[in-house]
C-alpha cells in the first residue's frame, strides 16, 4: 500500500484508539487543529474531545498529567510538539516517569507513550530543529525508539503501548511527507532489535530515524564505487542492541556512525565506545562518525543543509575509512 509516514502514524493512532479504550491522545493542537504536523488530523472528529485532547501550552503540566493518567491505569499517548520543547517537561520525564518503578520498588509502572518530533531539514530554525534524543537515551527507566521505515512508523506505537514502562518515540519531521510502499505485515516491526537494512561486507553504517534514507542512498552511491556497505538501523536508542551492532562490525571490520545529534556527547560517541570496548580486535580502521555541525541549527536553507549529515558527507567519510583518499 502506498502511503506517507504521516498517514502511517495516523493509522497507528487510529488503530490504538479503536482497540483499547484506555488509550487517549493529548498535546498542543492535536485536536481541533489536527496536530502541528497534521498527524492527528480528523481524529478528534472520529474519537471526540475526550480522547483527542487539546492541552494548554504547558509541557510540564500535560506530560505530568499523562504520567498521572498512566499511573491511574490509562494508556496515554502524549504528543510533545518537538523534542526542543520537551526540555520544559524534562523534570516530569526524567524525575518522575523514568524513576517511579524503581522508587516504588516495582509497585508502580508508568505505561505512558511520549511522541516527539525531532531533527532538522525543514527550515524551522534552531529552537525547532535540534536532535536531542541522545539526552533521553542517557536515562535509565526510559525506552527510546526511532522509526526510520514506514513499517516502523506504522508498527512501533502498538509495541510502545504494550510496554509497561515509559516509551519515547522520536519521529523525524523530515519523514512525514515521505511516501513509500508500506508492507502489510505488522510482525516485521520490533522495538527491541536493530535491523540490518542493507547487507554489505566492507563497512557498517550505523544510523537511525531520519538519517536512514540518507545512509541507504550513500550506500548505493558507495556500491557504484565498489564499496559494499552494510546499513544498520538502530530502531531502539535505549537500550542499544549491541548484539546486532557488534555482529555487523565483526563482519565488516569498519564502522561509520551517522547521527544528526551534535558530535560532542553524541549517541554516535556512545556506540563507538561500545564497539571499541567489545570489538576492538575486530576493527580494521579507525571508527568514524558523521554528526551535525556544532552550531544551533541555522535557519538559512544552505546553512542548514551544510550543518546536517548528508549523503555526500557520509560517502566521503566512508571513503576515508576505506583508505580511499577523496
Amino acid at each position: 500500500m502506498k502511503t506517507t509516514y504521516r498517514e502511517a502514524m495516523r493509522s497507528a493512532l487510529q488503530e490504538a484508539l479503536q482497540q483499547d479504550e484506555r488509550v487517549f491522545l493529548m498535546g498542543e493542537d492535536v485536536g481541533r487543529y489536527g496536530g502541528c504536523y497534521a498527524v492527528s488530523k480528523g481524529l478528534q472528529e472520529e474519537f471526540g474531545e475526550e480522547r483527542i485532547r487539546d492541552t494548554p501550552l504547558s509541557e510540564s503540566a500535560f506530560v505530568g498529567a499523562g504520567i498521572g493518567a498512566a499511573l491511574g491505569g490509562m494508556r496515554p499517548i502524549v504528543e510533545v510538539m518537538t523534542v526542543n520543547f520537551s526540555l520544559l517537561c524534562l523534570d516530569q520525564i526524567v524525575n518522575n516517569a523514568a524513576t517511579l518503578r524503581h522508587m516504588s520498588g516495582g509497585q508502580f509502572s508508568v505505561p505512558v507513550v511520549l511522541r516527539m518530533t525531532t531533527g532538522a531539514g525543514r527550515q524551522l530554525a534552531a529552537q525547532h530543529s535540534h536532535s536531542l534524543e541522545c539526552w533521553y537515551a542517557h536515562v535509565p527507566g526510559l525506552r527510546v525508539i526511532a522509526p526510520g521505515t514506514l513499517e516502523d512508523m506504522r508498527g512501533m506505537l502498538r509495541l510502545a503501548l504494550e510496554d509497561p514502562d515509559p516509551v519515547i518515540i522520536f519521529e523525524h519531521n523530515a519523514l512525514y511527507n515521505r511516501e513509500g510502499e508500506l508492507a502489510e505485515d505488522s510482525s516485521i516491526t520490533d522495538i527491541r532489535r536493530a535491523a540490518v537494512r542493507r547487507n554489505g561486507s566492507d563497512v557498517s553504517l550505523i544510523c537511525y530515524g531520519g538519517n536512514l534514507h540518507k545512509t541507504l542512498d550513500a550506500a548505493e552511491q558507495l556500491a557504484e564505487g565498489g564499496i559494499d556497505a552494510e546499513v544498520v538501523d538502530l530502531r531502539s536508542l535505549r537500550p542499544l542492541d549491541d548484539e546486532t551492532i557488534l555482529a555487523s562490525v565483526r563482519k565488516t571490520h569498519r564502522a561509520v556512525l551517522i547521527d544528526e545529534g551534535w558530535r560532542s556527547g553524541s549517541l554516535a560517541g556512545e556506540i563507538g565506545m561500545r564497539i571499541a570496548e567489545q570489538a576492538f580486535y575486530d576493527l580494521d580502521a579507525p571508527l568514524a562518525r558523521v554528526c551535525s555541525a556544532e552550531v544551533p541549527i541555522p535557519y538559512a536553507a544552505h546553512l542548514e543543509h551544510a550543518a546536517l549529515p548528508q549523503v555526500d558527507t557520509i560517502v566521503e567519510k566512508v571513503r576515508e575509512v576505506m583508505g580511499q583518499n577523496v
Partner: peptide, 22 residues
Amino acid sequence: PAARKRARELSVDPENIVGTGP
C-alpha cells in the same frame, strides 16, 4: 587492531607490511 591480531595468527610481522588503509 584486526590486522595485528590476524598477523599474529599467521605468524607474520605486520611491521614489514606496506599499509594501504587510512
